[in-house]
């Protein structure tokens, strides 16, 4: 197990290295001059050249890459040309906000999906199963923006009990926790719809297995069979998918963050991409890749813990 984790971590470092190089190279090749972008169209060529020298951009790309990586390892990702501040102050702040939103959502989504999925799947085609299936497919099929606007309509415009934006500032007139309610709700509806369906179909599959029959015909009560024999088996398949949701929750919340003016990581990335803010994009990509790879590692480890048939 330890050896496997060490191997995976090494693997991760190598992948990150490769990704960072690719991202760096891509940005190098992308059209438009960084200094020209900073100085604007009316600067003279000599001013541009001067800044280029000052920023060290006239040296070979490979040298600059290693320099960049060296600084990145100490947490310095350079300066954002759009926000005019160091990337590190900008990004950690935003990432923190997103992680908070992701953690709250995850804490709601996972227990909800497992509970509903298992209860629905244990009696295939029962009334509860049918109800849950309808609910989950409805949730999964309504896009986030539609769900967001719909909930805004109810809770903000009509009832007026929740804030319409979530800038996470105490001076906005709403308590911070209330600013979280709507974004979490939208993410939960959208994501849980999909996860419930996953857990349910896995549970249905497990309940059809001969070992469930064995457990029942041993004299176990139905409740016992579900809790002791079916549950763990039913979670094996959805487990990796559940962890994959973390990736979505960290870098895929653009729509929700934009909708509620939430100062998150996804929105930062979107703005950086629109503004060709290369330093921010590079740092963001590296963070997103790291998150993905970490969840994958945890996924593999958890998978092994759940299923004794998988050993490394």
């Amino acid at each position: 197990m330890l050896r496997y984790s060490a191997k995976q971590l090494l693997n991760m470092a190598l992948t990150l290295f490769a990704v960072s190089f690719l991202v760096f190279a891509l940005n190098e090749l992308s059209p438009g001059d960084v200094t020209r972008k900073i100085l604007g169209p009316y600067a003279s060529q000599s001013q541009v050249d001067h800044l280029t020298r000052e920023m060290g951009l006239d040296r070979p790309a490979i040298v600059r890459y290693f320099e960049y990586m060296g600084r990145a390892l100490t947490g310095d990702f350079g300066d954002s040309i759009y926000y005019r501040q160091p990337v590190s102050t900008l990004i950690w702040d935003r990432l923190g906000n997103t992680l908070l939103l992701a953690a709250i959502s995850f804490a709601v989504i996972v227990p909800l999906s497992v509970l509903l999925g298992v209860l629905a799947g244990m009696r295939e085609r029962g009334w509860f199963d049918r109800a849950v299936s309808v609910f989950s497919s409805m949730c999964a099929s309504i896009p986030e923006f539609a769900m967001g606007v719909f909930l805004l309509g109810i809770f903000v415009v009509w009832l007026g009990v929740l804030p319409g934006t979530s800038p996470l500032r105490a001076d906005s007139g709403w308590a911070i926790w209330m600013q979280f309610v709507l974004p979490v709700l939208v993410v939960t509806f959208y994501d849980a719809g999909y996860l419930i369906a996953m857990v349910r179909s896995s549970m249905v599959e497990v309940m059809r297995q001969p070992y469930i029959r064995t457990a029942l015909l041993k004299g176990n009560s139905f409740r016992n069979v579900v809790a002791k024999h079916a549950l763990r088996n039913a979670l094996i398949t959805p487990f990796t998918v559940i962890l994959l949701q973390l990736n979505y929750l960290v870098s895929g919340l653009v729509v929700v963050e934009t909708l509620f003016a939430y100062p998150g990581f996804g929105r930062l990335m979107l703005e950086a991409a629109l503004a060709k803010d290369i330093a921010v994009l590079e740092a963001g990509t590296l963070i997103a890749v790291s998150v993905t790879m970490l969840t994958q590692l945890f996924g593999d480890l958890g998978y092994m813990a759940l299923d004794p048939r998988i050993r490394v």
């Binding site: 070992y211 029959r213 064995t214 004794p308």
Partner: peptide, 8 residues
């Protein structure tokens, strides 16, 4: 094989 619980 299939009548025994694989994770117990």
């Amino acid at each position: 094989m299939s009548s025994l619980n694989p994770v117990m």
